[in-house]
Amino acid sequence: MKITGINLDVIWKNKEANFRNIEQALESQEADIFVLPEMFSTGFCMEASEVADSHEESLSFLRTMAKEKNAAFCGSAPVKQEGKFYNRMYFVHPDGQTDFYDKRHLFSFSGEDEVYTPGKERVIVHYKGFRILLQVCYDLRFPVFARNNDDYDMIIYVANWPEKRADAWEHLLKARAIENLCFVFGLNRIGTDGNDLFYRESSHCFFADGKEIAVKEGNIISADPDLQELLEFRKHFRFLDDRDHFTIKL
Rank of each mutant, 00 (worst) to 15 (best):
L197H: 15
G119T: 08
R131E: 08
E121A: 05
R189S: 12
C205F: 05
E121H: 14
M65Q: 10
V10H: 06
E112A: 08
S28M: 10
K69P: 10
K164E: 07
H55W: 05
A214Q: 05
D242R: 15
A17T: 14
S28G: 10
K69C: 04
I190F: 05
T247I: 15
D151C: 08
Y127A: 00
Y90A: 11
L250S: 06
D95G: 15
E82D: 15
M46D: 14
A166K: 11
R141S: 13
N14F: 05
I221V: 10
C182K: 13
R122E: 15
R104P: 03
R165Y: 04
E50A: 10
E170A: 02
L197K: 15
Y157T: 00
T117L: 10
I178A: 10
E57D: 07
E112T: 01
E47T: 09
V35Y: 00
F237M: 10
M89A: 00
Q228T: 12
H105N: 14
I33A: 06
N87Y: 01
R147H: 12
K164P: 03
K164S: 01
G119P: 10
Y138H: 13
F206P: 00
S60E: 13
S108M: 14
L173W: 06
G43W: 00
M65S: 07
E179V: 11
T192Y: 01
D226A: 02
F206K: 05
H236C: 12
I156T: 06
L36M: 00
V184D: 01
G119Q: 09
C45L: 05
E114C: 08
R131C: 05
W161I: 01
G186P: 01
L62I: 12
Y116W: 12
H171E: 13
D151G: 08
R122L: 15
T117W: 10
L59T: 04
F198E: 15
E16N: 13
K174A: 05
R20M: 01
I124H: 12
M154S: 09
L106D: 09
K69A: 02
L8N: 06
Q24M: 11
V158R: 07
Q29W: 13
L140G: 07
F44C: 05
K249I: 13
E112K: 06
D32L: 00
L227V: 11
F142I: 03
N219T: 02
D167A: 12
A77F: 07
K13F: 03
D53V: 08
S54G: 08
R176L: 07
R20D: 01
Q228P: 02
K13M: 06
K120L: 00
N14I: 08
G83N: 09
F185H: 08
M39Y: 09
I221T: 09
Y90I: 11
W161N: 04
L62A: 13
S202E: 01
K103V: 04
F100A: 03
M1L: 08
S110W: 15
P94W: 02
D113M: 13
D242W: 15
D9T: 04
A168V: 14
V144M: 12
H204E: 00
Q97M: 05
G43I: 07
R104A: 04
D153V: 06
F142N: 08
I132Q: 05
E16C: 11
